[in-house]
Amino acid sequence: MPQFLVAYVRIIEAVNIRIGRIAMYLLFVLAAILLWSVVSKAFFTPALWTQEMAQFTMVAYFVLGGAYSLILGANVRMDLLYGRWSEKKRALVDCISIFALIIFLGVVLWGGIESTIYAFEVGERSRTVWRPYMAPIKIVICSGVFLMILQSFAFLIRDIATLRGVRI
């Protein structure tokens, strides 16, 4: 395999693992926000920001962790046929079906970028009293989806390598 493709796979996967492992701990940020919501409601006035902040955190958790979850193989496949195929056959079919993933994520990103630009243009804010700007969370979604697309191409390169009998 050409050296730059191998390097691409190595770099992208290293980056995605790193980001995913950081995003993984957003679980506890989420729990902390929700616990603060319980406490502030019980002892002080209910906090205005907890609900939205929790929602933003949840989105960041599964979007930024998305590429890492792909690497972990956490996303189920229907393995009625797939489970019976040889490694080469799987790689061959994956080479084609990966484009379903890339196209889906690509369209999500397309809509996301337009929506982010719009958020900047009009200074879009959420409808709540806390009124956070919406651009940051939209950027987070776009970045996570973009990383997943990069990861999908890394899978594609790996599959092509497998077909050519090379291990990356």
């Binding site: 006035t45 959420s126 709540t128």
Partner: peptide
């Protein structure tokens, strides 16, 4: 009204917050 978590319109929520209402979307 103080401390009540209330579903309301954004502008109404902004107005009502001064009476201790906690607007929720």
């Amino acid at each position: 009204l103080e401390g009540k978590r209330v579903f309301t319109f954004p502008t109404a929520g902004r107005f009502l917050a001064q009476f201790g209402v906690v607007p929720v979307q």
